[in-house]
Amino acid sequence: MEENVLNPDKWVDRYADYLFNYTIVRVNDREVANDIISETFLAGLNSMKNFKGDATERTWLISILKRKIIDHYRRINSGKGQAEVKMNFPNSEDEGDWLEEKVADLSDMTAEDRMENTELGLAILECLDQLNEKQAQIFKMKTIDGIDTETICNEFNISPSNLWVIIHRARTSLAKCLEKNWF
């Protein structure tokens, strides 16, 4: 079995997007998410000696990230003393006093759906990790960032038909990797 080792020089390239997608759905603010991720990387650096190698690097960083996110929730709630629960009491003039009639519209995307989609996103990023670096990079630029073909071709010095072959191969491996859980 492969030994899990830490390689902090590669953390940002390898995991920044992953950590970001994990965080943003939970804190809903880009700046806050970035701060939490910086803290996570730093905490990781400072506790490298505690890494036992049972988990992968990514899992280990995620476990630190989770704690940082909880810290963040505590911080924003500490001013109020307690986490605040808002409840709108039904107005007797409205029709229907039953709580069931007060719940949000089911056709809305629920928090659960959003979490599931984030999980899907993280699964995709994990699968992309298995591609070679150039392939993954080109795929991400095209698919996630929506950068136009010409720009990518210039940057990597490849022809457009080359680019489509690379993306086609990336998508084929991605589909295979996702097959088990998501297709």
Binding site: P8, W11, V12, D13, A16, D17, F20, N21, I24, N34, I37, S38, F41, L42, L45, N117, T118, L120, G121, I124, L125, K140, T143, I144, D145
Partner: peptide, 19 residues
């Protein structure tokens, strides 16, 4: 559906600097 987001290169640079 996954609606993936990515960090910009300046954000990544920032992470590196802080590290």
């Amino acid at each position: 559906k996954a609606n993936l987001k990515s960090c910009s290169s300046s954000e990544k640079e920032n992470f590196r600097k802080k590290m």
